[in-house]
Design a protein around this nucleic acid. Sequence first.
DNA 1: TAGGCCATCTGGTCCT
DNA 2: AGGACCAGATGGCCTA
Length: 224
Amino acid sequence: MTELKSLSEDAYLALSHSYAATAAGLTFGVARVPEAVHGYGVPEPGGDTPSAPEPCAPITAPESSGEQSGDEDDTFEQRQRRRGSGTADGRRRPGEQRSLRLSINARERRRMHDLNDALDGLRAVIPYAHSPSVRKLSKIATLLLAKNYILMQAQALDEMRRLVAYLNQGQGLAAPLTAAPLTPFGQAAVYPFSAGAALGPCSDKCAAFSETPSALCKHCNEKP
DNA sequence: TAGGCCATCTGGTCCT
DNA sequence: AGGACCAGATGGCCTA
């Protein structure tokens, strides 16, 4: 199995730094995601009740997840008593509190599942090795890779626009764009993660990124 | 065994 | 009031 170490954040930052010019004009910050995200709730088979055990779900620790299975009411009540009535549900009867808490937990779980689904969708469109033998990109790696990909695409688009303008200038506006296929871009411009670098010393590991370079790979940044 | 990654719970805050 | 979002805490799983 191809082992893929988690990518160092610095590597991503370093890579994206090389596209700083493009990045300068782009802001992706969204303080609060508006309606587009609200109400997207995908109804789970189990409705509001705690969903079926997830791959990592059955946490049996006494403190953190006892109530997911709904069979440790005493612990839950004890905790509620310990915490006092600082929250909105403080004035509720214990049973009511519990069911409200379970409902909130289920909602939060669903929200996180939807978030993970979105991340999966993002992974699906990011150019990296999707082989089953390659470990799935971590969340942070997915986001950083996606960011770099977007920056590279923006740069390529900009480059293309400039080229088209140049061609139109030289050949007259009548020249059809389809007359000559536009293939002026180097691999680096088309493939965002290659950065034009040759395979590093750990090309086997970097192969996880479709033979991409080393800037993304911890191993490549390791000192010999 | 330590460290990375993840899922879940939880309480707080903001918004509708 | 209820829902969405967020961040901290906790514990499990996996890999080097």
